[in-house]
Write a protein that binds this DNA or RNA. Structure first.
Lengths: 327, 327
DNA sequence: CTGAAAGCGCTAACAA
DNA sequence: TTGTTAGCGCTTTCAG
């Protein structure tokens, strides 16, 4: 069995509370005993049991990270960065996938609540009311979403969408489709607003197609409507949708970017390997993961009910080969 | 504050142990009181604290999942499947990324040990002796590695490598390079053995290049040696290396598959979008994730020190566009 | 600076 | 069927 604090106490001839102190408040212990305790701990391979510690301190040193779909290439860089950043601060990370299902998301948050000091909600599918209710149980930081009274990390996809539409307009496109994603997506809403405004300013006609699943399948499924709409340019909900769209378009004998230009969002790895290489709005996912952890941990370690912070990260347009002037 | 078992006991007029029973052994409680307790729990929003429960039962209902690099596209499907499978069994999953660093890996395992019932080690970089030592603290299941006395889930990459070499031989290639990955990789060793044997059988000459990083960079870095070796076919350590290789080859004006054929391993998403679309050895990563969770949980729930199980999953060769007859 | 004692939320014998 | 009691591993007053 693994060594407990009692074993160490016995081995070093002190009381358990002294052992406890040498780990959680070393300055309250004389150097001599401290070294004795440390030596005993070392030789027994003792490590404080974090869960037991959490029971008295109320700090688990764990955080939860909830994403819609781990295998959506948008998330892994965020997960990786968040996890690495958390580790530096001595935090472990529960990662959970909701399969894009709000019910699963809610259940997950509730069962996780007691085991974590806070949770990172990435692009949640839950409605605001539910999120606010759950916030009574555990602190949240939401990513790519705004919820009243809650800290959030936002990637300014609106800015990216403006750049995207302006890019298409500058190339000479006059009729553009916005191929939307899931209905409840904050990102989708921002894109819509920004695209609509920029379309109006640049005098291009904008049609919206969707909602669609945020996947290659979703893109494939939207092909018919895109064709029917008679547009020469498309801004897709994300890169996966864009890739599916391109695939479907080419199956219908429509060349990209020859006849239709396509822009994605996310700048996900597969988009870089796609042919044509995808023009896309790059999202700062790693930075967002780190920022979210920082926000969460600072709100957790604050004594007062920290004022919610808002952090907006910039996006940019990466022009590659999937956009060109209209035929 | 969140409700505790005591609040529920008070609200329903029973002792805490009765509340405890209605959650962990409902059949020991009369339907009448059970309903009363459940109702009280419901209205208070009570959820048992899993960490506190773990303290007495010794079961945390958490598992650890340690991978070398979350953003390597090989891992997300495995993580997703493992996590989903664990959730069905009411388990939460800590995910940790070691950044391919054995020291980080070891430290992670030790700090995680007390908070989990077991850990899934995916393609660990640790040496066997260290793994065996750590196994005293916490049960392991290793993926794509064999360690004495430990359950493992293996993907039969040797079989895939044989198919790959045979495929190249059948196309007429007479001199082939194996572009290796990290030195300590079990997968790499299996590939090497199988490739060597099959090369001998089919009378092709095999040269080994590496070790290389298991990334696009690694592939790019190996280009010079591949060119110098004068081969017409390559089996790369994984798809990422293959993609880097192809990129580098084409920068040097060498056409793939026109002048050199390249085969990857993993069947990762970017390989499907690469041009030429990558011929590759497909790994059953999702199935492996599920199998690993099953193995871990069955060994955890067994009372005796379960006999280590070995589970081997099949791989297959997916022929796409990066292989062709030699010039 | 160190020890004693209480208690975090829960479960598990043991009695009743 | 239910209550009582002890205790999981640790921290945290409070004394000394």
């Amino acid at each position: 069995m693994a060594a407990t604090i009692r074993d160490v106490a016995q081995a070093s001839g002190v009381h358990v509370s002294t052992v406890s102190r040498t780990f959680s408040a070393p300055h309250l212990v004389s150097p001599a005993t401290r070294n004795r305790v440390l030596a005993a701990a070392e030789s027994l391979g003792y490590r404080p049991n974090r869960a037991a510690r959490a029971l008295t301190t109320g700090r688990t040193h764990n955080i939860g990270l909830i994403v819609a779909d781990i295998s959506n290439p948008f998330f892994p860089p965020l997960i990786k960065a968040a996890q690495a950043h958390a580790r530096l601060r001595d935090y472990h990370v529960f990662v959970a996938d909701t399969d894009e299902d709000p019910l699963v998301e809610e259940e997950l948050i509730q069962t996780l609540a007691k085991q974590v000091d806070g949770v990172l909600l990435c692009s949640p599918r839950l409605n605001n009311r539910t999120i606010e209710r759950l916030a009574a149980d555990v602190p949240f930081v939401v990513v790519n979403r705004r919820v009243r009274g809650m800290s959030s990390v936002l990637m300014d996809v609106g800015h990216g969408a403006r750049l995207a539409i302006a890019h298409l307009a500058a190339l000479g496109h006059r009729k553009i489709a916005l191929v939307a994603g899931p209905k409840a997506s904050w990102t989708g809403g921002e894109m819509r607003k920004a695209a609509t405004a920029t379309a109006a300013e640049t005098g291009v006609e904008l049609v919206t197609i969707g909602p669609n699943a945020p996947t290659e399948q979703g893109g494939l499924a939207a092909v018919r409507d895109v064709l029917a709409a008679g547009v020469t340019g498309v801004l897709a909900y994300n890169d996966l949708v864009a890739i599916g769209l391109i695939e479907g378009l080419e199956e219908h004998g429509v060349a990209v970017p020859g006849q239709v230009s396509v822009i994605g969002v996310d700048d996900v790895v597969p988009g870089r390997f796609n042919r044509p290489r995808l023009t896309t709005v790059a999202m700062p996912t790693s930075a967002a993961g780190r920022a979210a952890v920082d926000l969460l941990l600072s709100s957790v370690s604050a004594d007062e009910p920290a004022t919610p912070a808002l952090m907006t990260l910039e996006t940019s347009l990466v022009i590659r080969d999937s956009t060109a002037p209209p035929p």
